[in-house]
Design a binder for these strands. Structure first.
Lengths: 343, 343
DNA sequence: CTCCAATGCGCAATCGATTGCATTTTAGGA
DNA sequence: TCCTAAAATGCAATCGATTGCGCATTGGAG
């Protein structure tokens, strides 16, 4: 159990110089001679020196760590965003610390607290479904540390955020269903207080109206959008006398549940009911038939969030004007909604 | 941009006491009067005091952070393990820092380095597929900080690890196929140097021999086990004149690829070819037919890893004998392998 | 009324790296 | 050879929390 904890002082002692010089030499300070630098490098390797980031963090007031908070990391959407953040962050010498809230509000609050205490230099977060109160995020901002929201956001909050144009995504998806001949299109949504779902609902509605169909509130089903919810929502719709001939779901699992129920009951997809979901999770491409979906470009979203963070860090002190980046979603058309052969 | 950075000194000044007393009061030290403690608490709240964990970490030599390294967080298996770790770690006041290597060896090495510099108190890791050299892990151990491997491990390495009995899982899966009447069972494996795949191959082989079938090397296909690999492996097998009537894959995506190809070519699952995979990823339950698979109990695996970490921390200084925990896997039988109705 | 032992707090050093300013060394010009 | 500016390094304080040791109260026993 050897605990070799070589510090710059050990290097200094070995070379008969001071820690200051060692510190400067290691950072390639111009006022240190090339000779000394080489000697220090060599000694550092020899003593197996590892910088103590904690000490540096204490002194500098920055830890070079970005905290990332997501509801869960096991959705490809979120893990891809994380990857996008890392791409940018790593090149700027930042490390990331990923925390999961499991959509639990209390856990979200305590996580923010923990990251703050860990003195992260910034926080990038997609908040949980339960989150109505945003004080914990404001607190971060007031502490002067950058906070950037992605995907799930809140316009009233004066912080930077990166989102996709949910309205447009939903609009495209719905319009596509109309073009495929659907006349009665249902919509699965969730907690309408959350901006992304509100926007998607709005896009769905506008697309209907713009295409000469009417918006029927009774075709909008509110649920938690998980697999089981999608199933029960579909079952509920199938009890009607005028069952829908198309469904646009605000989630990937929701539409999967719908498809399962439809097939179990003998309906054909897309002939009887055409389906389009949201979030291009991998599994949507290997269901039968493969599911059409709205791709959110998660990697780009992560890149953008990290870039905003870096800009905010650079602009430190000057007051930074929160910026909003809106990415364009892409409709990916697969078998589940394709009735007509493209000419 | 107000930067209220209240420290224990600010509290001390306000109450006309010293920082030592404040520090002790906040930690409920017995030698501090109840009165003082209350006053400190109140002042702390009033000044919006947030402890600086970095300062404490520097002084104590511990950060209360556990580093977790996984190839990728977007596989349910890994994210569940993380969740299992968090469950235990959080109750012991530890936070986790999740890092992804994307199965890239260099990234794995640099991640270990980064965690070491961040002065994490321990590292829990499942190494990448490329990893043949384990020096970076040994370095961690030599530094006196606990390192625990999970799932993918290496017996020659003298460090604690938590794995499932891969041999048993494969044995059960293969035996099940035999019981369903399969006579020519193929196996998808990966880089046989990795212990988990070697063990599964061994389990497959033993089960065949124990059940009166012979082991045919030509039915073992080596690939990277992703979706595309599963497809091409299956295509390769279908070119034979004596095509297999069962496939056991060491991964979930591999077996999915196989099923896709089989269905495209008009084979029936499980009647013509029965399939069993590994890793109970959610999607395996909603393919058609649903895929049989070996569940690895990822949450328990995470729990166990975290518990070992805590034990090692407690045993600090005394030399800790690396321990190995082997969990029993569970075979989950679904339609893809079920030919006979259970009586 | 003394004296001792709890009880409550303060002092000062420590963790390791960083950095403004001071000091020493070196090189080159006069 | 002397002097000075430039080059190279050293000094010491700092970041904030922690903690062993020591000092000063206070209460109660004898």
């Amino acid at each position: 159990m050897k605990k070799e904890k070589a510090t710059i002082h050990d290097i200094a002692r070995k070379l008969n110089i001071t820690a200051s010089t060692v510190s400067r030499a290691l950072k390639d300070h111009p006022r240190i001679s090339a000779e000394t630098k080489k000697a220090v490098q060599k000694a550092a390797v020899k003593l197996n020196y590892q910088p103590n980031n904690i000490a540096a963090a204490l002194r500098n007031g920055k830890s070079n760590i970005i905290g990332i908070i997501v509801p869960t990391a096991d959705r490809t959407f979120f893990s891809s965003v994380v990857r996008g953040i890392e791409e940018i962050a790593n090149t700027a010498k930042y490390n990331v610390m990923i925390c999961q809230t499991y959509d639990n509000f209390d856990k979200e609050v305590s996580t923010v607290e923990a990251l703050l205490n860990a003195r992260v230099d910034g926080i990038i977060v997609s908040h949980g479904k339960e989150t109505q109160n945003f004080e914990h995020f404001l607190k971060v901002k007031e502490r002067g540390i950058p906070i950037i929201l992605f995907d799930r956001s809140n316009d009233e909050l004066e912080v930077s955020n990166v989102v996709i144009d949910d309205f447009l995504g939903a609009y495209k998806a719905t319009e596509h269903l109309v073009q495929q001949g659907c006349k009665r299109i249902a919509h699965f949504t969730n907690a309408r207080k959350i901006s992304i779902f509100k926007e998607r609902l709005r896009g769905y509605r506008e697309a209907l109206l713009d295409n000469g169909l009417k918006f029927d509130e009774s075709l909008v089903v509110d649920s938690n959008l998980q697999l089981e919810d999608g199933r029960s929502s579909m079952e509920q719709l199938l009890k009607r006398k005028d069952i829908p001939d198309g469904v646009f779901s605000s989630s990937a699992y929701g539409i999967l549940g719908a498809m399962q129920v439809l097939k179990e009951k003998g309906f054909k997809v897309p002939e009887d009911v055409a389906l389009v979901g949201f979030s291009n999770e991998p599994f949507t491409s290997f269901t039968e038939p493969p599911l059409s979906t709205v791709d959110q470009h998660p990697m780009r979203m992560g890149n953008a969030a990290a870039e905003i963070f870096l800009e905010e860090m650079a602009a430190k002190d000057k007051k930074f004007i929160p910026q909003k980046i809106v990415l364009k979603p892409e409709l990916i058309i697969r078998q589940s909604s394709l009735r007509k052969k493209p000419n």
